[in-house]
Design a protein around this nucleic acid. Structure first.
Lengths: 213, 213
DNA sequence: TGATAATTCAAACAAACGTTTGAAATAGGC
DNA sequence: GCCTATTTCAAACGTTTGTTTGAATTATCA
């Protein structure tokens, strides 16, 4: 039992933030469930905001490093397909879900954050995401040279929308979400790739390509 | 100036909820900006939760009715294309943005709600959305008979993910969102349709591997 | 105009919030 | 063993929250 309290606080905060949102989760709820004292949050992290940032930092660092590593490995080989780039981006995060309860909770939180993040957290997430997105955009631009940069950016935007929505686990009447996805990430990954790859590869709208058939 | 206070409260709540989220917006912030008394919310609506539901109900009713009307009009004609179905679903909401400030704020709130809605609001939204989604799913299923129902449901799920993300106006480093989209809904609509239609039409995946326990 | 209903208002409520404090308990090095 | 630094703890802090109250004001209509 050395630094155990810190880890328990991170795990519990991750779970509760993902489930109920940041503002709706009180420090008392976190410390109670983590079997820690209320003041422990301020002792170990300084404030509620910094606790949230710590939750993100802990996982985003390894997640984005793995994404960049996969992309780099990809580019040492021959020509790069859209599917391969998508897989390099998606699979590391999807594997977090497969890994079990804690990782899945984080992906839920991550999906939520893309939409409901406050101004302060947004800057933090932007700093974490910017280099990764930029690299993927470069690589995709080379694979899809027929797209204007702005058009490519928007399709990348739609792609992240699908991922955020799916990770957040947004409930829709038609889809018994948890039942379907739990334990079947392989199938979900293939569905995601199939849907997104053809979207990214769709003929450009802008008036530059009239010879495509 | 009879029912004016009620309308001002709805408008202001819509704007603030969309901008900062439900929990982060206090009734005092709403009533101050709406130039109303704090108790006016409880007089006109009963509680903060019911105020939020009233904000949704006011617009969702006409929005979903228009969607269903367009879909019905579509089916009186000949064979239905994926693009036409998507347009019937998207354009009514996108026109809300074009209509001006208030409508655009609502679409932001709507996009947010799909992800961060609490259990109570989720039931409310499900009741509002269920019949519409079911109808669109039926029509799309007839247009895309090669898809298994489950596969179609998931592609519809991805589609709503793109829309929610875009409506919420999720900020990404690469995209100066407000600058591009404001006043250019026509272009955004075409980009959305282009991206989503090919995704929905993508060839189905082969039979998936056996279940995992 | 006068009675009645609808609406607004200032003030207060208890509860929950994030944060701070200072003392008690524990751990590690010598 | 003692000394020191780290960690935990109960208690309280001042705000802010949604909600309630009862009187004052305004509108409605015979």
């Amino acid at each position: 039992m050395e630094d155990d309290t810190r880890q328990r606080l991170l795990d519990t905060a991750e779970a509760l933030f993902a489930e109920h949102g940041f503002a709706e989760t009180s420090l008392r709820a976190i410390t109670t469930q983590a079997r820690a004292n209320l003041a422990a949050v301020h002792y170990h992290f300084g404030s509620k905001d910094e606790l949230l940032r710590a939750v993100f930092a802990r996982r985003l660092k390894v997640l984005n490093e793995e994404r960049l590593a996969r992309l780099a490995a990809l580019e040492t080989g021959g020509p790069v397909t859209v599917e391969a780039v998508l897989t390099a981006f998606i699979e590391p995060s999807l594997r977090l879900r497969r890994a079990g309860g804690q990782g899945e909770r984080f992906t839920r939180l991550l999906g939520r954050a893309q939409i409901e993040a406050s101004a302060g957290l947004r800057d933090f997430l932007r700093d974490q995401y910017a280099p990764v997105l930029e690299r993927f955009q470069q690589t995709l631009g080379r694979t899809l040279p027929q797209l204007q940069p702005e058009e490519l950016r928007w399709r990348l935007y739609f792609t992240l929308g699908v991922l955020s929505f799916t990770y957040a686990g947004a409930r829709l009447p038609q889809i018994p979400f948890a039942a379907r996805v739990a334990g079947d990430e392989e199938w979900l990954l293939r569905q995601l790739i199939q849907f997104l790859a053809v979207g990214l590869r769709a003929p450009p709208l802008e008036e530059r390509a009239e010879e495509t058939a």
